[in-house]
Design a protein around this nucleic acid. Sequence first.
DNA 1: TAGTGGTCTAGACCACTAT
DNA 2: TAGTGGTCTAGACCACTAT
Lengths: 281, 281
Amino acid sequence: MLPSEPAVPVGDPQEGVNVVIQSEIGRTPAPASADGATPNSTGRLLRTTNLRVQLAEGLRERLRNGEWAEGSQLPTEAALTAEYGVSRSTVRAALQQLEAQGLTITRHGTGTFVSPYGHAITAGLQELQSMSDTIRSHGMEPTMRYHAVRFRGADAAEAAALGIPEGTRVLATERTVIADDIIVAYSYEVIPGALLPTDLTTDAVPDSLFGLLEQAGAIPHTAVTELHAACGPEIGWGERDPEMVYVYLHQIHHDSSARPIMLSRTYFHEGRFQFSILRVR
Amino acid sequence: MLPSEPAVPVGDPQEGVNVVIQSEIGRTPAPASADGATPNSTGRLLRTTNLRVQLAEGLRERLRNGEWAEGSQLPTEAALTAEYGVSRSTVRAALQQLEAQGLTITRHGTGTFVSPYGHAITAGLQELQSMSDTIRSHGMEPTMRYHAVRFRGADAAEAAALGIPEGTRVLATERTVIADDIIVAYSYEVIPGALLPTDLTTDAVPDSLFGLLEQAGAIPHTAVTELHAACGPEIGWGERDPEMVYVYLHQIHHDSSARPIMLSRTYFHEGRFQFSILRVR
DNA sequence: TAGTGGTCTAGACCACTAT
DNA sequence: TAGTGGTCTAGACCACTAT
């Protein structure tokens, strides 16, 4: 679904066919099976995408490329319906996602326009991403440096947050989060051991904990995030300013069944990392 | 749409009739006109609600009343379709809103369940509310005490944020935000004078700036919010701990056409007010 | 009045879960 | 296999905006 050839229909469910175009998000060029699904690392099949997502990605791409200037009007719903060969419902669903991300503004009776604040809220907090992806979407290169990795028993607070008995075996990590060689955060994570491969050793823990969880079949879906300000010499490790102020995020991550799969506590250096949220009424 | 009589259909567009039940949100019992709209304070008509919103409100009410226990299953989409006499699309739209608010979890092939973390995220940051409503939804009684109110020229930063020339006349306020007799925040707001009634005087500024804007036809719709941690003796006024740490929200409020209508900068005392966000992937 | 988005329906077919 | 939610369509009618 390239912007240069938008007249090609992305699918036609009427004929029972579901044309799946390789998603730009799924970067691994895994062999696609006949029903438009790709095997993941655990061997289970995941449906790669759907029309709404494909259309939204296509439009985001065209917006990124500057095809429509800030404030100018996008094609009407009817035009997009014809151009992409999908129903108006699908077009509307895709446009609603863009609006929720702050990329466009839709005005009743008038049209859909490129939002004037789209740049300000790339990677808003309301969308859950791994820390690395968050840093990348700010245009920086992430490094996660492990300060400590070990298995131990969960303390009372961790047990309560994760819904497990106190003392249950958990993987506990402490990491320095680096963006373009600058320390931007100190982070503490706790994952119930029962969710991880039984043969996992501390020196085999990968940089991406989201990836580790996914491979183990515990796919992060939502996070209940509490927001705080913090300061004090007990935060972090190594050489640092004891007067530093931090934005502190206390997050309980859940899979799609609302099962708690990770507790993360992250202290971001104020001023080195910008968080934004698009709040909608 | 009382939970005790859910079999009554909430509307039947097929017959061109749109039955509007008085929304619980619109507390003013204003006389409804024949087409199901209520006049607001500026005399313009506002459509009070729609089926999706009514259904979502009804279900939220039933959840609040504990009709379904935490973790238990809600009626299926088919059951709700029959019970309320609306289409499955409308039922799905309402359920999706509940899920986005963290109240329910929908599992493919299984059903919709009461979320185990619903209580934790009432009034999440991702939903834009007035400060008073935010405090009320935390179960406390808000008071906004004016520390300063005046008209003056916008400085460079304010002008840039609001998209107006430097020096343009603005209403600038400084307020102490109180919840149940405890100071929870210091807040600074700036509103372009052109948006306000020309005869507004500083001593006639109401407690609710959202209300003031609404009456003037500039209805808050979205806010681009930047999140910071802050401390220092220059924050706030009156007797206070100079070591206090604050969660600082820098917000540019827009109307539904993305026109900037208010800049607010609010310093919340860390620990006296809990912010949460539901992040979804 | 013409053109835009907003709401809602009925129905088809598919994918997932649990048994 | 039965029952659940997920995706998508085609079409109707309405509300809002601009002229």
